[in-house]
């Protein structure tokens, strides 16, 4: 027997067990904290940045209306593309080979080409088709004839571009979510006399949502930022508004910082509903709480311990 083993057997059995300490967690947190503080101080003291300008333009009416436009574009494009995405996902999963091929082709084209190119394409549709005619093809029956540039102003062109591009991505996310639900779930619902539609809405979709929501949250945040690409066809969203102001006062960096603050605020606001949606659809899975819940509950119990100790 070695010394430590002998010691272990001779000492009392009723001893306290101390968990492993993690000194490197504290060290790394300290180093990163210092680095971050240094970066913040450097930025703040930079003579080339006029801080007053940032303050002046943060709540400028043109900036604010740009932000409103950005939010509108994001929600409009996400809402319509989600509906279309369900449709394309359904087509791709369909037993009908024609529908399935068309869905595959759609995703292939729109996911395969840059969003910027698609935006420019829709923005300059008037160069391709000078007028748009609604009627019965290959007959003389015409319901509506309109000038393309009048029918599709930049805002509409931008919405179409963002929506159609997003549909391709959303369709793939939704398809993966639907495929993630075990086929036994469908059979169990059928065996209880549920119709296919009811089986889809009550049994399959709620379970697919658990898989669909996290990536869709990501897509929404990407969309919020991708709206800035619409500046190439002069849609007055946040980025365009900032560049217009900057072209007059030549404070490019300050205005970029202004809109950066707005983009971060908006993406942060978006992650809150996502968190609660994930919780709602994660019921019954025993999924772990995320970092937000863990931090909050840890802080909460620490506060209570402290007040208990005092009281």
């Amino acid at each position: 027997m070695t010394d430590t083993q002998r010691q272990a057997t001779t000492e009392s059995d009723d001893v306290l067990a101390v968990p492993l300490r993690h000194p490197w967690r504290w060290a790394s947190a300290l180093v990163l904290g210092l680095l971050f503080a240094w970066l913040a101080v450097e930025l703040w003291n930079n003579q080339n940045i006029d801080h007053a300008t940032i303050g002046n333009y943060l709540f400028n009416s043109r900036i604010l209306s740009g932000a409103v436009m950005t939010v509108f574009l994001t929600f409009a494009a996400m809402a319509v593309s989600t509906v279309l995405g369900v449709l394309v996902a359904g087509m791709k999963l369909s037993a009908n080979p024609v529908l399935s091929f068309l869905a595959w082709f759609y995703v292939w084209v729109f996911r395969g080409s840059p969003l910027l190119v698609q935006i420019v394409f829709w923005g300059y549709l008037g160069l391709l088709f000078s007028e748009i005619v609604f009627g019965v093809p290959m007959t003389d029956i015409v319901f509506l004839r309109a000038n393309t540039n009048a029918l599709i102003p930049p805002l509409v062109a931008g919405l179409i571009a963002l929506t159609l591009n997003q549909t391709a991505y959303s369709a793939e996310i939704i398809r993966a979510g639907l495929l993630s639900v075990d086929s036994g779930q469908r059979e169990a619902a059928y065996s209880l006399g549920m119709s296919p539609l009811r089986t889809f809405s009550k049994i399959v979709l709620p379970q697919a949502m658990r898989v669909i929501i996290p990536p869709m949250g990501n897509e929404t945040i990407s969309m919020l930022k991708d709206t800035s690409l619409l500046s190439v066809i002069a849609v007055l969203e946040l980025y365009t508004a900032a560049t217009r102001i900057a072209s007059q006062n030549l404070r490019q960096v300050e205005l970029l910082l202004v809109i950066t603050i707005w983009y971060v605020v908006m993406t942060t606001a978006l992650s809150i509903p996502q968190h609660y949606l994930e919780k709602r659809f994660g019921r019954g899975t025993g999924a772990q709480d995320g970092i937000l819940d863990r931090t909050l509950s840890r802080a909460w119990s620490a506060l209570r311990r402290r007040s208990d100790a005092r009281g």
Binding site: D182, G184, E187, S191, R210, R283, G284
Partner: peptide, 13 residues
């Protein structure tokens, strides 16, 4: 016609 499956197939949500 009721049915009981090998893998239960309860609705997990």
């Amino acid at each position: 016609i009721g049915m009981v499956f090998q893998r239960f197939n309860l609705f997990p949500h």
